[in-house]
Amino acid sequence: MHSFINFIMGPMVWISFLIFFIGVIFRFFQVIKLVNERENFIYTYMSFKYSFRSIFAWLIPFLPVSTRKSPVFYGISYVFHLLLFLIPIFLLSHVALLEESMQWSWFTMNDAVADILTLIVIFSLLFFIIRRIVVPEVNFLTKLSDFGFILIVALPFVTGFLAYHQFFAYQWMVIVHVLSGELMIILIPFTRFFHMFMAPFTRAYTGSEFGSVRHAKDW
């Protein structure tokens, strides 16, 4: 058991990040190739000005009109996406382990704060699940895999929460927590999670098309 735990909390972390980085580079090349082959006309109207104008507009909460039309969904979505990164990066136990193995260390948040933020993430994910079931227009577009992706995101947060409180099956909770976190890192380049990298580019593309072709705002 000790060598298994040592492996998943040691080398496996670096293997996951390696697959992640190689995957991201591979996917970028793939996307660039696809654009060159099929839609290279977009280069004729891509514009830095309209790209960044659009990206910044969409970074400001509730500036885009469509976000104001469903404020609850976009509000929860905004907070969720922020916490998805803030919690794991500034979690005391993550930074403590990184400090012990790499001497890297940075600001950490209080465990009690992280605990509440984690609950917010879990409830946001519950909201996304319920929304996909009860809102007809969303349900119509929902595939089974959409729930799968929500569960993959939920797993590290739920097991982390349960492990922190040591409610039951502590050792297994930590093991599933570590493995599900690594699974998510590995899956990012190869699944829908890749939108975390593509989002600025799709925004730039739409922004440029609206700006240079249609002479309109896209927010």
Partner: peptide, 29 residues
């Protein structure tokens, strides 16, 4: 200090395949 405790305790537990190595096995709620 925190690292001193953690390194000393955990490194030996990993090497001897015995003793606690996960947070909650030492910091019991």
């Amino acid at each position: 200090l925190r690292m001193a405790f953690h390194k000393q305790c955990k490194e030996c537990h990993f090497e001897s395949n015995k003793g606690p190595v996960l947070c909650g096995e030492c910091h019991i709620k």
